[in-house]
Design a binder for these strands. Structure first.
Lengths: 229, 229
DNA sequence: AACTCGCCGATCGTACATTATTTGTCAACA
DNA sequence: TGTTGACAAATAATGTACGATCGGCGAGTT
C-alpha cells in the first residue's frame, strides 16, 4: 500500500515520482477543501503537472472529475478555477443535509430492528468511552453510527449525497478541536436519537438529527472564523 | 477545419448529426440518460472516440466528468461502465427534489416582490396560451417559471442541485407525451403556487410545489413503464 | 485438474501539435 | 501627452499519437 498523503503545500517535492495515478485527484481535492489553494485561484494544468510530478493528462482528468463534483469551475478555453470553500459553502451543504438527513432518519425509525438499536447503543457507548480522545477514532465511530442508519436506505442517490457532503465537512473540520460544549451536544443528540428510535418517534428523531446537523455546521463555521484571523 | 462529425451507427440521433458545438460530454450524457446505451454497459474510450470522431483524450475527460456527476462508475485500469438510469433513479432524484424545492419555495415566498408575482403570472399566461402545443417552448417557459423563484436564492449549491436534477429529468422525459390529466395538474399547481405567493402563505406554497414535483416524478415513471414493453 | 506463461485488448501516462486567449508593443490620432 | 487600435509574441488550453502497463483469457505443461 503506497497511498501516503504526502502533503505538500504550495510547492511540492518531485521526490516520489512513481505510483500516483488516481491520487492526483485526492491531492487536488484536499488542497481545495482544506484551503491550501485560495478561492478562485486559477489551476493551470502544466503547473500542477510539474508540482505533482506527473504529466498533464492525469491532471486534466482529475480536474474534470472535480468539476463534475462541483469543486472547480471550468470555462471553455480558459481553464479551471477553484470554487471558494468558505462559510457560505459550508452553510449551503449543511442546509441541504438538514433537509436530507431528517428524511433518511425518519425512514430508519420505521425500519430499525431491536438489533439495530442495540448496535447503535454499542457504538454510542464506545464513543462516550473514547470521549473525543482520538479524532480519527471518533470520526470512524461517528461514521459507523450514522451509516448504520442510512446505509440500507433505498434512495442510494440521497445516501451518496450524504456521504459526499460528510467527506467534505470532515475534510474541512479535520484538525479543528471540538469545543466542550459541542462535545456535550453531540453525545446528547445521539442519545436522544436512540431514545426516539426506541420509542418509534419518527418526528422526534428527525428533529434531533436536524439539530445535530445544524449544530455541527455552526461549530465548523465558528471554527473557520477563528482560523481566519 | 478538420472536425468531421463521423457518426455513428445505431446509437446516434440523426437530428443533429453535424452539430460541432455539441460537446462529447453532452453526447455521452444524453446517451446514458436517454437509455441509448444499456445499463452497466462498458464504455471503451477507443470505441467512443471512433464513434464521435475525436481522439481519446476528450472522451476520457468527458467520462471523468460524468463520473464526478455519478453517471458512470469507473474502476482503475478497467474503464468505465454506465450507471443504470431506471425508475429507481428517477424516484431517488424526485424524492430529493421533494425535499429541496419546497425549502427553496418557502424562501421565495418571503422574498418575492410584486413584480415577481406579475412576472410569474405573465409566464403562466404564456404557458396556458401555449397549452402544451410545443414541447420545447413549454419546457423553456416552465424553466423560466421555476428559475424566477430559485435563481436568486442564496444557497447556490442547492440551486445547482436543482438545475442538474431538472436537466436529468427533462432529458429522460423528452419525447414523452404529457397526459391530459398531468397537463391539468401542472396548470392547477402553478396557479395555486402563485396564489400562495400572493397570500404570503409559505406553507401552502411549499406543499403545492411538493405535489408538483411528486406528480411530475410519478408521471415520468409511468411513462417509463409504458415504454418498457 | 490446477497452475503458469504468454498473448491480446484496453486503460493510463508521456510527449507533441494545434488552437485560442491574453499580454505587450508600437504607431496613429485627438 | 495620453488614449486607442491593430498586430505580434507569449501563455495556456485543447486535441492527437504512441509507448508502457495492467487485467483477462486461453493454451500448454506438470
Amino acid at each position: 500500500m503506497s497511498r501516503i498523503s504526502k502533503l505538500s503545500d504550495a510547492i511540492t517535492d518531485p521526490s516520489r515520482s512513481e505510483d500516483v495515478g488516481a491520487s492526483v485527484y485526492e491531492q487536488l481535492r484536499d488542497d481545495i477543501i482544506s484551503g491550501r489553494v485560495k478561492a478562485n485561484e486559477r489551476l493551470k494544468v502544466a503547473e500542477l503537472a510539474g508540482r505533482l510530478g506527473t504529466s498533464t493528462n492525469p491532471i486534466r482528468e482529475a480536474l474534470q472529475q472535480l468539476r463534475g463534483e462541483g469543486f472547480v469551475v471550468m470555462t471553455p478555453n480558459r481553464g479551471a478555477r477553484v470554487r471558494p470553500i468558505d462559510e457560505d459553502f459550508v452553510r449551503d451543504i449543511c442546509e441541504i443535509e438538514m433537509l436530507i438527513e431528517p428524511a433518511l432518519t425518519r425512514w430508519f425509525v420505521g425500519f430499525a430492528t431491536q438489533a439495530d438499536v442495540e448496535e447503535l447503543e454499542r457504538i454510542q457507548d464506545e464513543i462516550e468511552a473514547l470521549n473525543f480522545g482520538d479524532e480519527m477514532k471518533h470520526s470512524n465511530l461517528d461514521l459507523r453510527f450514522h451509516q448504520l442508519m442510512y446505509d440500507r436506505h433505498y434512495n442510494r442517490h440521497a445516501v451518496e449525497l450524504w456521504v459526499r457532503h460528510r467527506h467534505i465537512l470532515w475534510a474541512i473540520s479535520r484538525g479543528f478541536p471540538t469545543s466542550l460544549s459541542r462535545q456535550a451536544n453531540v453525545l446528547g443528540e445521539h442519545r436522544e436519537l436512540i431514545a426516539c428510535v426506541k420509542a418509534q418517534d419518527a418526528q422526534g428523531a428527525a428533529d434531533a438529527i436536524g439539530r445535530h446537523v445544524e449544530g455541527s455546521g455552526r461549530h465548523i463555521i465558528e471554527r473557520m472564523r477563528l482560523l481566519k484571523r
